[in-house]
Amino acid sequence: MLYAGLKTLHLIGVVLLVGNAIVTLIWKLAAHRTRDPRVLAFAQRLVVITDVWFTVGGVVLLALGGYGAALVAGLDVLNVGWLVWGQGLLALSGALWAGVLVPAQIRQGRQARAFAESGEIPASYWRAGRRWAVWGVAATVLLLVAVGVMVAKPV
């Protein structure tokens, strides 16, 4: 019963993390297509808010549930191949988020607050947005591959 509860917690974390990554990318790109400074500023603000609640919250639930379930099941998380691969892919995705995506979001958020008033969107905002989208897709693909590894449990 404890294992099932921890695994459920882990899966809820996966849904929150991966779901937020995919949905944020889609609606941020849709906001960019409008080229409306107010829409962009609003979308940029929500990127930060949803990352705090859903991405960080998802990671916390994912880790608590996953490591807890592994402990209860007696799995060595550092020596079971599929667990090592899953953790590695998650860590690599997390490094992209921490090193590239979050700093870009912060820069774009500052710019968006300024241009929401002036109405003039600088070229640097669009460059940062393209970079964010490319690295966001890469980070999300890593998460999806990690989910596949965790489900398939290859030897």
Rank of each mutant, 00 (worst) to 15 (best):
M1S: 13
L2K: 03
Y3Q: 07
A4K: 06
G5T: 02
L6M: 14
T8K: 07
H10R: 07
V15T: 11
L16V: 13
L17R: 01
N20M: 10
A21C: 12
A21Y: 00
I22G: 14
I22N: 11
I22D: 09
V23Y: 12
T24R: 05
L25D: 07
L25Q: 03
I26M: 15
W27L: 14
W27M: 12
W27K: 10
W27A: 10
K28H: 12
L29S: 11
L29P: 05
L29E: 12
A30Q: 15
H32V: 14
R35L: 05
D36G: 15
P37A: 11
P37W: 02
R38P: 01
V39K: 12
V39M: 12
L40N: 00
A41C: 02
R45Y: 07
L46W: 13
V47K: 09
V48W: 15
V48C: 10
I49H: 10
T50I: 06
W53I: 15
F54N: 04
T55D: 04
V56L: 06
G57V: 09
G57M: 08
G57H: 06
G57I: 08
G58F: 06
G58L: 09
G58E: 09
V59G: 14
V59Q: 11
V60E: 02
V60L: 13
V60T: 08
L62A: 14
A63P: 00
G66L: 08
G66R: 00
G66Q: 01
G66H: 01
A69N: 03
A69F: 04
A70L: 01
L71I: 07
D76W: 08
V77Q: 02
V77C: 00
L78A: 13
L78Q: 07
N79R: 15
V80K: 05
V80A: 01
V80G: 03
G81K: 08
G81F: 10
L83K: 07
L83P: 05
W85V: 14
W85S: 06
W85D: 09
G88D: 06
L89C: 10
L90D: 01
A91L: 14
L92P: 10
S93Y: 05
S93A: 15
G94R: 07
G94P: 10
A95C: 12
W97D: 07
W97T: 08
A98T: 13
V100T: 13
V100R: 12
L101H: 01
V102A: 07
A104W: 00
Q108L: 14
Q111A: 15
A112T: 06
R113V: 09
R113C: 05
R113L: 15
E117I: 12
G119A: 08
E120L: 09
W126A: 13
W126Q: 15
R127C: 02
R127Q: 08
R130Q: 13
R130Y: 11
R131W: 11
R131C: 08
W132M: 07
W132S: 10
A133W: 03
G136A: 01
G136C: 04
G136P: 00
V137W: 06
A138Y: 12
A139H: 02
L142M: 12
L142I: 10
A146R: 02
A146W: 00
A146G: 05
V147G: 02
V149K: 04
K153V: 02
P154V: 08
V155G: 15
